[in-house]
Amino acid sequence: MKFAIQVNEGPYNHEASVSALNFTKAALEAGHEIFRVFFYHDGVNNGTRFTSPPQDDINIANSWSALADKHGLDLVVCVAAAQRRGIVDQGEQERQGKDGNNIAPGFRISGLGQLIEAGIQSERLVVFGD
C-alpha cells in the first residue's frame, strides 16, 4: 500500500518525529511504499544537517537521511514553513541571499502542493504532530 507521512513537529521537543521515523521504518519493512514524507510546521527542523546531539542520543536528521538513502524516500520540507524557520537549501540560499545553507542529505524544499499531491496519490495519509 502507498503511504504519505506528515510530520508537524521538530526533532527532540516532541516525540512526533521519532514516531514518524519508526512508523516509516515499519511500513517499509512490511513491504509498503512511502510515496512521500512531508515536513510541515516546526517539522521542517528535521531537515537540517547542522544538528549535533550527544553521542548517546539519536541523531534524528541523520536517521531520516539514512532511511532516504537506503529506500529512496522523498523527504519534502515545506518551503513556506522552512523560510520562517531558517531551513535553507542551495536554491533558497541564492533566492533569499543567505550566506549558507543547512539542508540535510535526502531532503528537498518544495511547496505545500507536495502535501496535497501526496494526499491525492497515496492510499493513506498518517500525520504525526503535537
Binding site: Y40, H41, L112
Partner: peptide
C-alpha cells in the same frame, strides 16, 4: 501557528 499554517494548506489545496 497551527491555525495559520493550516489555512495556508487549505488555500494551496484549493488549486488542486
Amino acid at each position: 501557528i497551527y491555525a495559520w499554517e493550516s489555512l495556508e494548506v487549505v488555500l494551496i489545496g484549493a488549486a488542486f
